[in-house]
Design a binder for these strands. Structure first.
Length: 581
DNA sequence: GCCGTTTTCGGCCCGACTGTTTTCAGTCG
């Protein structure tokens, strides 16, 4: 596990223990925030060893947390955490993970009936101990039992590659319900996060009852978690929770903004509103007239509510695209121009039947052409990728000839002869230079030795970045989301070298990879790197994975000028040629 | 615990829903 992850877990744990022991809630939140900030750091926090000033310069980290971080980097532990851990029974904080159990209830379980772990909770439900507690009725106990059962079968957060199609299918179904005028998804899905905790839907309807009924009785619904006048929650059979909010058309922007989040972005906007003598909630931005109760309930006319753009404008802030609402920047800072899917004109990483793809060469080219691309690169695997039917030198030479022949017949699209060549464990490439030099495009990717040390990974990847014949580093860390951590190289060193050598780093758009990840993209953009967004297509439908790469790119503030897939053909081909003898 | 173009002290977002209990606490997002 990376140092960042370990340290973030420490702060998360500090927050949980403080919460259960009844500490000040703001202190709890401050520790949670530190955990999040550390987890989001693109680089290894070890680089800040001994650097208290640098640490406190990071938003959310104050002097106290900086000391704890330095202690951890120095000794591998945090004494405050050890002290806190000794104050609560082992397993107690695990109870916070049970949906429906919050800090207050966990504390009561501990102190009133000595339930201090998930196991003990199950026993206490079984033997009736729980029923003896005040405010612990049959329904509450049944809900806890259900949550425990759910926890056994549910795994990690849902990947965006699964969540987005589910949301779109739900929207298609619900849009058909009579009275529904508008329905969209919000939440972390709209922000394009790589994994999703739950799906948030927002609807405008003339008949809320009909929509709520239809929603809660969809065949894929396993359990109804809540059904109110404006909000319903269900759990689907696939385990994912879906929240549906019904709002009025004239407040749709405020609601969309509110439910898109992130929570931190909302807080920043609210604080901004308060400073301007206003109040912001999911119904709109209101003048603060000092009256009792909520402005919407008193019929106060909002300053802005109908669209997100109206609200940002009224707050005198630039409009933030959903992907940039993680509150990693000051809200007053104008977002840069971002890449858009319509600007992509080239796919630079794709496989054919020659290695492990399912498309013939003409089929691959047809997919690219149907999307209006000016360039498609054929990049089958190299010889070391035996499991992927990688090409021997002889097979690659013949493959190059085939690609060149097809290319010569086509006027409207350029077909590049390339390879996705393995970066071996020590940084050497899988083909000799004279063969690589014959290719129009070389993507160098790590496929093996993905558990090597950070130092080895850094020098391995640096060697590939600096190789004069390499254009793009494919999926640089080799991670698979929720499955394989992949390499943890010194990203700051990588992006610096890549910028200097004009070697592009890839955002592999496959939603299982998204590698570079958003924080790495951000670092690369800041360093002035070239970035490629590639689908790594093995089949025709893989071309549609591009949108996941775009979301990640936008979350990393990537603009069209640094994204080589958006370049006009001339500029792209010129850059490719510049790396040829 | 963190933060400051009103502040180095005194704030720190706000509403919906549930379950339980008769007016609200707890959880969630």
């Amino acid at each position: 596990m990376s140092t960042n992850r370990q340290l973030a877990d420490c702060f998360e744990r500090i927050a949980s223990i403080l919460e259960v022991t009844g500490a000040n809630g703001f202190k709890v939140n401050a520790n949670r925030r530190v955990a999040r900030v550390i987890k989001d750091l693109p680089d290894d926090i070890s680089s800040h060893a001994g650097d208290k000033k640098g640490l406190t310069a990071i938003d959310g980290i104050g002097a106290g947390s900086a000391d704890k971080i330095l202690e951890f980097l120095d000794t591998g532990e945090i004494s405050e955490l050890a002290e806190l851990t000794s104050q609560v029974p082992d397993g107690l904080v695990d109870l916070l993970d049970v949906p429906g159990l919050g800090p207050k209830t966990v504390r009561r379980l501990w102190q009133e009936v000595d339930v201090t772990s998930i196991e003990k909770l199950k026993l206490a439900i079984g033997d009736g101990t729980l029923e003896s507690m005040p405010r612990m009725g049959a329904k509450t106990i049944a809900n806890i039992a259900d949550s425990l059962k759910f926890m056994e079968t549910s795994g990690d957060r849902l990947g965006i590659g699964k969540a987005l199609p589910i949301a779109e299918a739900l929207i298609t179904q619900l849009a058909e319900i009579p009275g529904v005028e508008r329905i969209e998804y919000a939440g972390s899905l709209r922000r394009g996060r790589e994994t999703i905790g739950d799906i948030d839907l927002l609807a405008v309807t003339m008949d809320p009852d009909a929509l709520a009924d239809s929603f809660t009785t969809l065949p894929e619904v396993a359990k109804i978690l809540a059904r109110g006048a404006t909000k319903c929650s269900v759990r689907l059979q696939r385990g994912v929770q879906v929240d549906l909010r019904m709002v009025s058309e004239d407040a749709f922007g405020a609601a969309l903004m509110y439910f898109t989040g992130s929570k931190e972005h909302n807080v920043a906007l609210r604080e901004r509103a308060i400073k301007a003598g206003q109040r912001l909630n999911e119904y709109g931005l209101y003048p603060d007239d000092g009256g009792e109760g909520t402005p919407q309930s008193r019929g106060v006319t909002p300053v802005a509510a109908a669209s997100e753009a109206d609200i940002y404008k009224a707050l005198q802030l630039p409009v933030h695209p959903p992907e940039l609402r993680e509150q990693r920047d000051d809200v007053e800072q104008s977002p840069p121009p971002l890449v858009e899917i319509g600007l992509v004109h080239a796919e630079l990483h794709a496989h054919t039947r020659a290695s492990d793809g399912v498309m013939s060469l003409p089929e691959l080219v047809e997919q690219a052409r149907s999307r209006g691309y000016h360039t498609i690169a054929v990049t089958d695997h190299s010889k070391s990728s035996v499991q992927a039917n990688g090409l021997s030198e002889d097979r690659l030479r013949k493959h190059i000839d085939e690609v060149r022949e097809l290319d010569s017949e086509l006027k409207d699209i350029r077909v590049l002869a390339g390879s996705e060549v393995d970066i071996l464990a020590d940084g050497r490439l899988d083909y000799e230079d004279d063969l690589l030099a014959q290719l129009d495009i070389v993507i160098a990717s790590p496929h093996v030795a993905l558990r090597q040390s950070a130092d080895k990974a850094t020098s391995r990847l640096l060697r590939a970045i600096r190789h004069p014949l390499v254009h793009i580093i494919g999926h640089p860390t080799g991670r698979i989301i929720n499955k394989r951590e992949g390499l943890s190289p010194d990203m700051a060193a990588l992006v610096e070298a890549a910028a200097e050598c004009r070697t592009a780093l890839e955002i592999n758009a496959n939603p299982l990879r998204l590698d570079l990840r958003d924080t790495h993209v951000r670092l690369a953009v800041g360093a002035g790197c070239l970035v490629a967004i590639n689908t790594d297509a093995h089949s025709p439908e893989d071309f549609d994975l591009l949108r996941y790469g775009l979301l990640t790119a936008r979350r990393g503030r990537l603009g069209p000028d640094q994204c080589i897939n958006t370049w006009p053909a001339d500029r792209l081909h010129e850059w490719l040629s510049s790396k040829r003898p």
